[in-house]
Each structure stands twice: as C-alpha cells, then as structure tokens.
Simulated assay, not measured.
Amino acid sequence: MDISGNTIFIPGSTSGIGLALALALRERGNTVIVGGRRADLLERLAAEHPGLDTVRIDTADPASVEAAAKEVLERHPGLNVLIAMAGIMRAEDWHRPEGFLESATGIVTTNVLGPIRLIAAFVEHLQTRPDATIMTVSSGLAFTPLKATPSYNASKAAIHMLSESLRLQLADTSVRVVELEPPAVRTTLMPGQETSEFAMPLEDFTAEVMALLESQPDATEIQVERVKFLRYGEARGDYDQVIATLNRLDPHGD
C-alpha cells in the first residue's frame, strides 16, 4: 500500500486506533473519510479536523452499509482504499449461556459480518481502480487466545483466514489485501486498557504502523514488533509459554 495519494474510507474510526490512523494518513497527503455511528461525533471531528470527510455508518446494519457505500462513492469516486476498522471486544463467561451468548452474537455481527458487508459493498468498485487496497484488522489474539475473550479471539482468527483467502482470490485483480495485526494498544476497547501498562501507547503504535506502511509497501501483514510475541508463538515452538504469559500478565491482550 502506498503511503500517500490515496482516497481512503475507514469505518469505525471515530476514536482509538482508527482515528489515529485516519489523522496520520491525512497528514501524509491522503483524502480520508471517517465512518461512525454517531452523527454528533462525526460533526465534531469534521469541525476539529478540516479536510477530514465523515459518513455515518453502522456496520452491524446491512442497510446502513449499503447507504454509506453509495454516499462515499458518490462523493469520492476515486476511492481506492478500504480499511475495515470497526470492532468490539468483551469479556465473557462460557460456563453458562447467559454469560456469553448475547455478547458473542454482537461480536460476530460487528467483527466478522461487518467487514464482510463492507468488502461486499466496495469490492467491485475497488477492482476498477488501478491500485487498490483492502485492509482488514485482526489482532495478536487471532494467534494466541486470551482466556477472558473467547468470541473476540475467534472473530479475529476468522478475519485472519478471511484475509488470507481473499488475497488468493483477488490475486488476479488490482486489489491488494493487507492485514493489520495490533497488539493491545492504549484505547478504550476494553475497560482499563487505556491506562494499562501492558498495552502499547497509541502514538507509538500509530508511528510504527505508518513507518511499516512506508518502508514495506508490498507487505501483506502489518506487524509492529510487540505483536510478534503473540503472532509467532506456535512457529517458535513456545506457544504454551506465550499463552501462559499472556493470561497471567495482562487482562487486555498484551
């Protein structure tokens, strides 16, 4: 993925990693459209960051995805990058259905069906662009499970395999598939994570991701150094130790 000169839509980017990347990409000379559910928050972001476009979208709602895609493409027919950022993470107790079923349904709807719906809405258009990118967002927890968040772990593992499969299917098109694999980052994704000493500072994560995008434009997986502990435990042969360390030290995934 080239670091500048793109038109980029980032649903789920009104805060946290999504917003940080949206602002960093805009500073590098890209046209960036931020998507989110709350109209008031989108209006505030547009006022605070002139030049940043906004579109209301709820990726859990198929009609909202369809309407947002139409609006984005009408205003930005040169769109060539989709970053499927929206996601939720919740602690669950799978000993009884009331401890997980409602949560799991919501997580799968947002974290798995959301990106699928987004890709469905834009994939034909992206194939008309000479240089296009779909960026998915998985997690280090796609590769090493955090005990407290079974559905989140599974949803991100699904995104990893979806990314791998799409890369094969779209190899005959102009569309690249890139997977961003964050570690725990200091955001509000989970209670207490924003101040967790085990989570990576957001500004450090953003800077490292931007540096990787610039130095490795053909990379298929964007991995900051801190996520490699989780990503490659099985390949290194220390998977059991990685699981033990993760679940002993950090309730938020780092």
Rank of each mutant, 00 (worst) to 15 (best):
D40L: 07
A132W: 00
A47I: 04
D61P: 08
M190E: 13
L25C: 14
M85A: 14
A46R: 13
A120F: 03
P182D: 02
N111P: 07
I83R: 06
L23C: 10
P217S: 09
E124S: 04
E179L: 15
T14S: 14
P11E: 08
V65L: 06
N153K: 01
A207P: 07
D250L: 12
L162S: 03
A86C: 12
G16M: 13
P201N: 07
N247Y: 08
M89A: 00
E48P: 06
F229Q: 11
L41N: 11
A158S: 13
R186T: 02
P251A: 13
L189A: 13
A69L: 11
F100G: 01
L212Y: 02
I83N: 02
L101D: 01
M135H: 15
Y152D: 01
T245W: 09
L162F: 06
A68F: 03
E208G: 12
L146D: 00
F205N: 03
L101R: 08
I88V: 14
H49V: 05
K228H: 02
A142L: 02
A84I: 12
K228Y: 00
M161H: 15
V32Q: 03
Y239D: 13
G99E: 08
D240P: 00
S155P: 01
H76R: 12
E98R: 07
F100I: 00
R38W: 13
A69R: 03
I119Q: 05
I17K: 10
S165L: 03
Q241S: 10
V242F: 03
H76I: 07
S15Q: 14
G51F: 14
G233R: 05
I116P: 03
T7P: 06
A20W: 01
T128W: 01
R167M: 08
V112Q: 04
R186W: 03
A184R: 02
E214Y: 11
R186E: 05
L73G: 04
A158D: 06
G237S: 10
Y152Q: 00
L170G: 08
L246C: 06
I116H: 09
P182M: 01
A69P: 15
F229T: 13
T144P: 04
D240W: 01
S13F: 02
S174V: 01
V137W: 11
N30S: 10
A91Q: 11
T173W: 06
A86T: 11
A132H: 00
N6Q: 12
A69N: 11
P77L: 05
V55F: 09
T187N: 08
Q169A: 12
S4A: 15
I10Q: 10
E124K: 08
D131C: 05
L82V: 09
A68P: 09
V175F: 07
L19F: 04
I222E: 04
R90E: 05
G99W: 09
A157H: 11
I107K: 02
I57N: 12
A20M: 00
E98K: 09
S151P: 02
L213F: 03
G12D: 03
D131N: 09
V112A: 02
R96N: 04
Q216G: 05
H49C: 08
L162K: 06
D240N: 08
T110Y: 11
S215T: 15
